[in-house]
Computed example of a mutant assay.
Amino acid sequence: MSTLETIALPHFPQYPLCVGLYKNVKNASFLRQQLLAGNADFEYAFLDASVVVSRMQFLAASFRGINDFASDRMKSHNVHSEIVFSFSPNNNIAESFRRFGISDTTQHVLAIKVLSSGITAESVSQHLQQNIEGDQVDVSDTNFAELVDQARLRKIYKLNVQARKGSANGTSSKEAEIKELETSILGVMALRGS
C-alpha cells in the first residue's frame, strides 16, 4: 500500500507535488548515483529526511523552488534541484546539495516529484516502490519529528534554539522545541538571497 501524498500548492495548482517519506533506506548510494548520472527517470528532489523538521519546511522549499521555476529565475538545472537548493540558508548550491540532498549513507529519504504532463501520481508511486529499498511511512509531522537530527539542523542554520522550560499552551517540551526550530528555520530560508 502506497502512502505517497499528492499536494497542490494553493498558488501553483498546475504543479502538484507527489511526496513520499522512507525510513531505513538501504540503497541511497544507488539513488544518488542515478541523480549524478542525470538519469531522467530519477528526476526527483531526494532529500535527507533527517534535516527536514516538518511538512511546513518542505512545503515552503517546494513553493520557492516552483516559484523560481515558474518565474524563470532558477539557479540550478531543474525544478527538483531548485527545491533542494531552496532548503539552504545561503546561496551556495553545492553546499545545499551536500547538506540537504541524499548521500551514500542517508538512512531516511524524502522524495518530492513535481508532476507534469504525462507523469501521474500512480506512475511516480510505482517507480519509487520499485527503486527505493526502505519502509514507506506517512508524510506527517510526527514522522519528521521522529527522524530529525535537531543538532545537525541547528548547526546548518546557525541557530541556538532551545525549548522553553515548561509549556504554557499544553504542548510537550519536544513539540515546543520542534515548533520553535521550525519557525526559526523558515525565517532563515525566507531571508536567503534577500
Rank of each mutant, 00 (worst) to 15 (best):
S62M: 11
A37Q: 09
V188G: 04
R164Q: 13
A8G: 15
E133M: 04
A111P: 00
E146Y: 07
E133R: 02
L35I: 04
A94V: 11
F63L: 08
I83V: 15
Q129P: 05
L128W: 02
L110I: 06
R98A: 10
L147F: 00
V79S: 02
V79T: 11
A70D: 08
V148W: 00
I66R: 03
E146G: 13
N78S: 13
N24S: 10
G134S: 14
L110C: 05
S125A: 11
R32G: 03
A121G: 10
A60R: 15
A28L: 01
L159K: 14
K179V: 12
H80V: 10
K174A: 01
V114K: 02
L186W: 09
L59T: 00
A176F: 04
A37V: 02
R64M: 06
R164Y: 04
A145V: 01
L191P: 02
V139E: 05
H80S: 12
T183W: 04
A151G: 11
E177H: 10
I83K: 07
A70N: 03
T120D: 13
G187E: 13
Q14S: 11
S140K: 08
D41L: 08
F87R: 08
D149S: 04
L36W: 07
Q34R: 15
V114T: 08
S29A: 14
H80Y: 13
D149F: 00
A151L: 08
S116A: 12
S184C: 07
S140M: 12
A94I: 09
E133D: 09
D41S: 05
